[in-house]
Write a protein that binds this DNA or RNA. Sequence first.
DNA 1: GTGGTCTAGACCACT
DNA 2: GTGGTCTAGACCACC
Lengths: 122, 122, 122, 122
Amino acid sequence: MQWNLKGDRPIYQQLVELITMQIVSGMLQAGDKMMPVRELANEAGVNPNTMQRALAELERQGLLYSSRTTGRYVTEDAALIMRVRESLAEEQITDFLARMEQLGYDKEKTIFMIERVSREGN
Amino acid sequence: MQWNLKGDRPIYQQLVELITMQIVSGMLQAGDKMMPVRELANEAGVNPNTMQRALAELERQGLLYSSRTTGRYVTEDAALIMRVRESLAEEQITDFLARMEQLGYDKEKTIFMIERVSREGN
Amino acid sequence: MQWNLKGDRPIYQQLVELITMQIVSGMLQAGDKMMPVRELANEAGVNPNTMQRALAELERQGLLYSSRTTGRYVTEDAALIMRVRESLAEEQITDFLARMEQLGYDKEKTIFMIERVSREGN
Amino acid sequence: MQWNLKGDRPIYQQLVELITMQIVSGMLQAGDKMMPVRELANEAGVNPNTMQRALAELERQGLLYSSRTTGRYVTEDAALIMRVRESLAEEQITDFLARMEQLGYDKEKTIFMIERVSREGN
DNA sequence: GTGGTCTAGACCACT
DNA sequence: GTGGTCTAGACCACC
């Protein structure tokens, strides 16, 4: 796993986003057992406290839950994962449309370009 | 003019991108006279040499040209500006599609979402 | 290494040409490690930034590449080096033919003279 | 007449070379009357003394002569002009061959390249 | 210790 | 007064 962490934003925040991506993209499946905090922290090259903070935030969002004795798991609420996935997608789309509009492309031109680019990209 | 410069990437590179955006978005029109280097540098809050470097790069790309004594101008090659605009748009699209794919959206689903989001955004 | 720098043209430009010559003439072989910037600058008697600028330009042309921490190297693309060599040779020839024509020698007379001069030079 | 004078070598020397070129290239014909020193100096944007020095040198070489009363003339010795022309051509050729050799081209390859370049240049 | 970047301040040519 | 160049010296990321 590549944990490409930049120094321009809080680390824990980047960890939240990366783990969220792992969950919504299916890399981590609903119900999967997470690795121990210390191991995750070690793999990511961050302080265990920082990783702990990220996991706590994800628990607050409901994407993870922990049972004190057996460890920490990805939520089994597939609908929640789906909602988060859609929410992230909408965010991507909103940002994207804004950037394209700044370049002078309205929705129709943008969709036309997408068709063209993805045709070429084959 | 807002010169929102971050500390995570070379400043001259951000300057190149910002000025490119001003040109392709029409804020700076083909043939327009640029402000003097020192003035631009002052406005952006950077060293004149840094601004100089950015402008030199844009000159290399053909988006600007300078006559030694009278100042610096936006190219009059509207076709070049258009090409750069399209190239930037394609880059945006490629990146966007990659991010959407990571979220599990293929081209069709993505376009469907765009339609939905932009309908809601009205 | 002799760095005969004149004051009539930008130093960084002369550095570019000199190093290019070292590469195309084989003094620097494909894949060779370059000396550190600061050392080169010192040897040439110029400011490190000036040498840096020259090397950056050569990197842009693809004749050099650098890995952040281990140093800077001559490209391993022998074909590129060959292309540059041919391009320089063509430039020499074009200039030469122009000068000879100004002296009233067309291509045939010029070649005849070359034969004569190089016979005498033996 | 363009008197492109650089600041890196003695002006009078550059004047000598430029006027020599005018004579051997036929721009100034054998026997032609030269313009008055002051006029030449004015046209070239140099001090009359500097032009005077250049003309004196050309007289020393025999390419010009002056009759105190009627002015200064190009020599009528066509053979001398021819000899100077050949001498300049040989110099060009020697320099050229040296530069080509540094690029790794021997006489044969050089002549081959000349044929190729002048064919393309049509 | 390496390359990369940035700042500050100077000088030059051109006109 | 413009752009272009150069120097000196500093800091940073990376390994």
